[in-house]
Design a protein around this nucleic acid. Sequence first.
DNA 1: AATATAAACGGACCGCAGTCCGTTTATAAC
DNA 2: GTTATAAACGGACTGCGGTCCGTTTATATT
Lengths: 213, 213
Amino acid sequence: MCRVSLIPIRPGGQGGPRNSAQPAADTERRDAARNRELLLRAARGLIEECGAAGLTMAALAQRAGVGKGTVFRRFGSRAGLMMTLLSDAEAAFQGRFMFGPPPLGPGAEPLERLIAFGVERIAWVLEFGELARAAEESPYNRFDVPAAVLWRRHLEMLLREAGVTADPWLMAASLSATLEPERLLHAVEAHNLAPERLAGSWRDLVTRVVRGA
Amino acid sequence: MCRVSLIPIRPGGQGGPRNSAQPAADTERRDAARNRELLLRAARGLIEECGAAGLTMAALAQRAGVGKGTVFRRFGSRAGLMMTLLSDAEAAFQGRFMFGPPPLGPGAEPLERLIAFGVERIAWVLEFGELARAAEESPYNRFDVPAAVLWRRHLEMLLREAGVTADPWLMAASLSATLEPERLLHAVEAHNLAPERLAGSWRDLVTRVVRGA
DNA sequence: AATATAAACGGACCGCAGTCCGTTTATAAC
DNA sequence: GTTATAAACGGACTGCGGTCCGTTTATATT
């Protein structure tokens, strides 16, 4: 005796939400654009006051002066909103590891790039962690969000370049598990772990993985 | 303008819930014991019919013929209920890696034990994964649940025995991240990954970590 | 300017986890 | 048997994420 309650793959009803930070293509109604700006501004303000964990969708709607339905139409879900708020920082990080200067960007040895990736990622999480954690509260996915897929592919590529031939896809998945925001934040917040220690452990782990052929 | 909403460390109000499967000490009122049995029986039935994800606390209360408050008094939270339901399987697994026969239990080489630990854990997660996933939906902790602490300590000990001297505590944390139910289940369910491939990758990872001094 | 229409809007509504607090009851003491 | 009391009980209530659907409106077309 249980309602079947099938899994909502795409929470936004029929039309997928436009959850991007940029104006999202040419055709967009003025009111929609204005409301998105209003909502993003209100969200940032609310987070500044209450923290990301303290933001509720109803409060956001009220502060922005729009209906709750509009909030969900824009962002699809709370996690979608958080991802939108993160998208600039995320894109900047992506740019750095794909096109930036070594050792993070191309030009350095694969192992050095792997080390730099983790170290920078740890710093990134410690800066934007509260948002990142909130963005991962999506009921499903979270592993198949575009950004996460991209990191894993990047790690996989570096592993291959470094000569790790045994199932680099899964190895990249394991390594990225180590870098998940929730884990890192928990270590720092609950155990008072120094960020440098996290970075050191990452260096050690990835070095062993590459060298231990 | 936001309600401060402080973090509920222990959800059960003043007195902690008795969320153990066994009768939990000598002094327990008859009605409480009877209701716990009723609730556990009802929970198992409900999960059989609807899956762990489909179990709601209200439905459980109704099926057991008790009030909703009683359910939360017993188990503290939904995650607490799931942990209680898992506790037998969990204890059995703990017994095997602590006192059982090699290569999982004592007697084998540390690296062999590490490999066996991951392989058995993967099999365990694939068997009880739905429950385990539901048990990890606790808003905070999840890393500091007794069972999780115990695995990490076990991994840490094996790493030390295997000669891994560089921050074995964090290394154990990284390794256990690889084995988290949500990750493993996602790989198997969403990417149709063969369990043997997971096991193979674990073997490879842990071998590299130990050998790559 | 009038009209058509697809898009956006808004807020009542739903289901669920978790809480509160007045009521009931098992147990022990006498 | 009576009484005291701590424990357990139950269900109305709250807050939140998310949905539905009737209403409004921006924009294109004529």
